[in-house]
Design a protein around this nucleic acid. Sequence first.
DNA 1: AACTGTGAAAACTTTCACAGCC
DNA 2: GGCTGTGAAAGTTTTCACAGTT
Lengths: 218, 218
Amino acid sequence: MKKIPESTVGRLSVYLRLLRDLSDRGVTTLSSEELAERSGTTAAQVRKDLSFFGTFGKRGLGYSVDELVRALRGIMGLEKTWRVALVGAGKIGTALLGYQDLRRQGFVIEAVFDRDPAKIGRRWNGLSIQPESQLEDALAGGIDIVIVAVPAEAAQGIVDRVVKSGVRAVLNFAPTRLTVPAGVTLKTVNMAAELEGLSYALVNEVWRGNDAEDARET
Amino acid sequence: MKKIPESTVGRLSVYLRLLRDLSDRGVTTLSSEELAERSGTTAAQVRKDLSFFGTFGKRGLGYSVDELVRALRGIMGLEKTWRVALVGAGKIGTALLGYQDLRRQGFVIEAVFDRDPAKIGRRWNGLSIQPESQLEDALAGGIDIVIVAVPAEAAQGIVDRVVKSGVRAVLNFAPTRLTVPAGVTLKTVNMAAELEGLSYALVNEVWRGNDAEDARET
DNA sequence: AACTGTGAAAACTTTCACAGCC
DNA sequence: GGCTGTGAAAGTTTTCACAGTT
């Protein structure tokens, strides 16, 4: 398979969310132009993105919403349920625990860890918080993805342990740069950096000059 | 001023966080190579990024940590305090409210809004939650940035009102594509998309093939 | 006639490589 | 000698434009 741009994968997520929505509303068919408009990109981009993975449309007609949903779910690996563990039951961690949308998308949080003895054993959505020392044991049970929501100083240590336990995908909320070995995928959600991006835009009056509707976004 | 890549601005945030840390630890000077290694990029990239904004290093010596911190703070607009409002006092919203790191970086949450009458008047960190109906009045008081942490269906409506009130920077946590007029900057934090990116990587065995340390990251 | 799929062109970003300064 | 700043080259992503299918 050819090399797929990172940005393409990001857009596939957007397309998928949109298409599910349209499907729920009974839309059965749409063109690349319509999908592009709703997802803030161009028709050519939509077609190119999809073309990396196969051919899903019908010339002259467009795409079947349901078929495309099915195809995208397959491409993105969203047909199976992913087993997720959460490390860090602080503010962000507990916010995530309550975020039912994740479960709906097939990401099920099966274990929660914290370092603070005061929190151990407390129950959250049917899970009881385990001590961080048990991380290795619990991960051995077949966790696919670990979400790291601990303070910046502790994050690299946690990631190292998690990777050593065989986990190959990590979502990091700590505002720090982490290192993982090849073969492990790490994504970082950094709201401080996003806010700083807004600050930059405000002082530099940056924006993609464009017409009325449909503006700067990142 | 020339056009600055989006990605450059993102890296400046990373450099800045790192440099502050080094400064606290008493490091006074470093080379582009050292900064690059710590931030997961290359020396040439560091130099190119900085070169968009001026010349900050000394040939043969490298960069003064404190000078570079000062320069970056200026470039990013982080010398002033930004006045922030939060719309949506649900799980994510309240997690953000308690996130002291933001205040430390100069982003001060000055108002909180929610739609739920049961939450109105409740106090959070010295702020009392206001009804969403008062959004326009309160924003008139000089809010620079609005954080949107409401359900997806409500987000576009909130953004429209916020923009109409003159706010020019929005950070969106709702998992949906929003539209803002030109002149307004919108950033979206979408953890569902990040998780889907991990799912994609897991099923497609994707990773930038690279040597041992220092791997795939996004 | 409408709309996709796709090579080729354009635009953008990163890396290279070296002249220039400390 | 060591390291920056930067044009030019390489690499990557997006856009164009059109042949091909329904």
